[in-house]
Simulated assay, not measured.
Amino acid sequence: MPPQPRPEPPAEVVVAFEDNRLATLLFGQHDQNLAFIERKLGVEVTARGNHVALRGARDSVEQAKRLLESLYQRLRAGQQITLGDVDGALRMAASQGVLFSPEGAPKAVPASGGAASVGTRKKTIAARTPAQDAYIRALQKYELVFATGPAGTGKTYLAVAHAAALIEKGEADRLILSRPAVEAGERLGFLPGDMREKVDPYLRPLYDALYDMMPPERVERGLTSGMIEVAPLAFMRGRTLANSVVLLDEAQNCTAMQMKMFLTRLGEGSRMIITGDPTQVDLPPGQKSGLIEAVDLLKDIPEIAICRFNAGDVVRHELVAKIVRAYEAKGERVP
C-alpha cells in the first residue's frame, strides 16, 4: 500500500495593527469579532494587545489574516465595524473570491471588501451578501427596482439608505416613503386619532431606517418642509411624482389595481423602489398580490431591475436565518 501523505502542519501567523484604538474596535466587545472569525473559519485566534495570533489550516489562516486587514482598513477609513459587517465580509469574500487569486496566492482586498456600498451622512453601508451587492448596484443603475424576499435581508434598509444618499447629494428633490397601511384595504377609520396618529405605527419601520441614515434634525426639517414624506399608499392616488425617490414597502399587500396606480405615479427625474415578500401576502383569499403580478408582468422590460433575496441572505442575527429556514421547511410564514 502506498504511503499516506503526511498531514500538513498547522500554519501560524501573527498580525499587528498600528492603532491600538482601531485594533480594539476591530476585535469587538469582549473579542466577539475574533470569536466569530474563529468559529466560521475554523482557526485559533488569540489577541494580545494590538497583535492577533492565527493558527490553523494554511488557507484558513491566510483568509482570516486578509479579512482582518480588510476590516481594519474600513476602520481607518472612518467606517464602523459590527458583527454583521464581519459576517458580511466573510460572505462576500466566499462568493466573489476576493481573498485569493485564481492561482491561490493571497491578494490585497479593498477597504470595502469589493462590495457595493451606500454612503449616507451618518454611515457607509456595505453589501453583506451577493444579493445585497446586486441590489445596491441595481439601485444605482435603474430608475425602477423591485426587491422581493423574506424579512431581514436588508431590502427596505438599503432602499432607504440609497434614497437618503440621493437626497443628501442633491440628486433628488423629495423622498417619499409609503406602505399599505394596516392591511391592503387601508381601513384607517376604525383607529383612534387623527390621520398621522392612525398611520404612524404602520410606517414606523420606515421612520426608524430614515433616522438611522440622517441626523434627526435633518429628518425633522425634511418632514416639516415636505422634502421628506412618509404616507400610506392611498395618499399616492392622483399624483405625479417628479424629481423624487419613491419607496413602496410591504408591497405584497397591494392589490393589482393599487400597484398599477403606484407604478404610474413615476414622473420625470424620479426613481422608484418597490420591496416586499411574496410569501407574506395578507390580502383576502382569492385576491392576487399586486407585487406578484407586477413582477411577472414586467420581468422582461430591460429598464426594470428585479432583485430576489432568500433565507440565505438574512443579515439580522445568526439565529434569525436559522429560524426563517426552520419555518420555511415547515411551510409556515415568518413575519
Rank of each mutant, 00 (worst) to 15 (best):
A329M: 07
P335D: 14
V45C: 15
V118R: 04
A47L: 05
L223V: 11
Y211N: 02
I167A: 02
Q287E: 15
G193F: 13
L166V: 01
A161R: 03
L71V: 01
P102Q: 01
V199E: 02
F309T: 04
S270W: 08
K322S: 13
S70D: 01
E318V: 09
F190G: 05
Y327V: 04
F36I: 11
D59R: 02
Y72L: 10
V86T: 07
E38W: 02
I136Q: 05
A164M: 06
N33S: 14
D282M: 06
V145C: 12
M261F: 15
P7E: 06
T46R: 15
M257Q: 15
M259K: 08
I81D: 03
G222R: 10
K299M: 12
D19P: 04
A256R: 12
R308F: 08
T240H: 07
L71S: 01
G222A: 08
L54Y: 01
V98R: 00
R21A: 13
L266R: 09
A165I: 05
I167C: 02
S112W: 03
Q32P: 01
A172G: 07
A163L: 14
M195G: 04
T82W: 10
G113D: 00
E8I: 01
H30V: 14
K299W: 10
A256I: 14
A138Q: 08
S270D: 09
P3Q: 11
G113C: 00
L247K: 04
K40N: 04
N243L: 07
I304N: 05
G226K: 10
S225I: 06
G88Q: 02
I304P: 01
G193S: 11
M272H: 12
E229C: 00
T264Y: 12
G170N: 09
F235W: 12
M259S: 11
D200L: 07
R308D: 10
D212A: 14
N243P: 02
D194F: 11
V86P: 00
P285N: 05
V320K: 05
V246I: 15
R265Y: 08
A181T: 03
E103W: 00
K330A: 14
N253A: 04
R325M: 10
L68H: 00
G152E: 11
E268Q: 14
R316M: 11
K65C: 05
D313R: 13
S244W: 03
V320P: 08
R121D: 09
A89I: 00
L83I: 13
G104T: 01
A94K: 04
K65N: 06
Q63R: 15
P102V: 01
